[in-house]
Design a protein around this nucleic acid. Structure first.
Lengths: 149, 149
DNA sequence: AAAGATTGAGATGTCAATCTTC
DNA sequence: GAAGATTGACATCTCAATCTTT
């Protein structure tokens, strides 16, 4: 609880970070929508599911990885399941919860979204930074993330 | 329309930027809520109004500065007005729209929110970066913002 | 027709309460 | 009691339609 003051440059960096990321995300979402594709949140969830060998995770694991609270996670998965992108499966080891598995349609959607997403990242983000700059930025962002400990 | 590919480090920086900013904002909002204060969006609007000499702006000017679309701007100002933080005034020069003016209560709220906000920025953001790093970050973010031209 | 702004309807987010299993 | 998850009620966001003035 240090309650320290903040210098002018720090404030400028903070405001820049918030505004830039906000504007960037908005552009990416617009591109996805224009292409008739679902929002980035869908991509995030499907990507995490696709990463693991058996293509399924517990709901709370998804929530942790994608930075979703439990309410939103429940409801986002409702929509994904309704559209057939994931499937909830009862969990033998822990009957409180369920597994969430990516479906074939979910994998197909992932493949359809990536080109649009990648193109947007390049156009609005990568294009404006040099190689050392993205390295530096990646390192700084890593440090700002909450400790996983 | 370059449609370029994106290298691994760029992707890492992008994901880090999104995740870090998301986590940071969430912590700041939590601190404000814990202190019994309204969300950051209120602060942003009131701050912009407080910046200008006569303490009032057209609605679309606020929308531009705070990166709000017109729907949200209308409704956010409804809430601010309902709580007596701003006041809509008819605009003589352009009768399509109105001026939005910050009230005495609005200024008071601004003063109450800042210590909590500043403390959160320091704790979650400034604390983790060196002076040259915040400078670099500010510069990069500036470059990523949409051109004002 | 375009710009500034509002509104209704529907989608999504949030909080507190609840349920089941650990 | 705590963890995983769901649900109802309410807040907020989003889109399309609308209105007025330029």
């Amino acid at each position: 609880m240090a309650e320290k003051k903040v210098c002018e440059t720090t404030l400028k960096a903070w405001v820049g970070l918030v505004r830039a990321q906000q504007a960037l995300l908005e552009r990416v979402e617009t591109d996805l929508k224009t292409a008739g594709l679902p929002p980035l949140a869908w991509y995030d969830v499907l990507l995490e599911l696709n990463r693991v060998p058996d293509g399924r995770l517990r709901q709370y694991e998804i929530g942790d990885k994608v930075l979703l609270n439990k309410y939103n996670c429940s409801r986002l998965l409702d929509r994904l399941e309704e559209e057939g992108m994931v499937q909830r499966q009862s969990c033998k080891e822990d009957r409180r919860g369920a597994h969430v598995a990516i479906t074939r349609d979910g994998k197909t959607l992932l493949k359809k979204m990536w080109p649009v997403y990648e193109s947007a990242i390049s156009e609005y983000f990568g294009r404006h930074l040099s190689t050392p700059e993205v390295g530096q930025l990646a390192e700084l962002m890593q440090r700002l993330l909450p400790k996983p400990a």
